[in-house]
């Protein structure tokens, strides 16, 4: 069976599941962010694969460009939040920051 759409979808399904796993089991906020990046890349691969194999057009690639830009903005803000958190609480672990509970 030559390489086609299902192969790309399988790769992206693996990436998405791994990203989900990282988001759920990591305590470090930067590790969670890495999981989010994996999930975004899975979505991007799907966009490009569908635009190549099903739509035969370019709209999926344009959407991927927007997703990449927004992911970069998200990463910048999220990492700034992690640094601010580290300065105020002395730890990058997301589950230690629970001052609203008290």
């Amino acid at each position: 069976m030559s390489v086609g759409l299902p192969h790309f979808l399988t790769v992206s399904a693996f990436l998405f599941s791994l990203g989900l796993f990282a988001v759920m089991h990591r305590r470090n906020a930067v590790g969670i962010l890495m999981g989010v990046e994996l999930m975004l890349n899975a979505a991007n691969i799907n966009f490009v694969a569908f635009s190549r194999y099903v739509q035969h057009g370019i709209d999926g690639q344009i959407m991927t460009a927007f997703v990449i830009v927004l992911a970069a903005a998200e990463a910048a803000v999220a990492l700034a939040i992690v640094l601010a958190m580290y300065r105020n609480f002395g730890t990058p672990n997301a589950d230690t920051i629970d001052s609203l509970k008290r």
Binding site: V30, L33, M34, E37, A72, A75, L79, V82, Y86, T91
Partner: peptide
């Protein structure tokens, strides 16, 4: 964007924070 930008940022923050 990803390898030249986001990843460098992520690695910087990993190195600047300590558990």
């Amino acid at each position: 964007v990803y390898i030249g930008g986001v990843l460098v940022l992520v690695l910087f923050v990993v190195m600047m924070t300590r558990v």
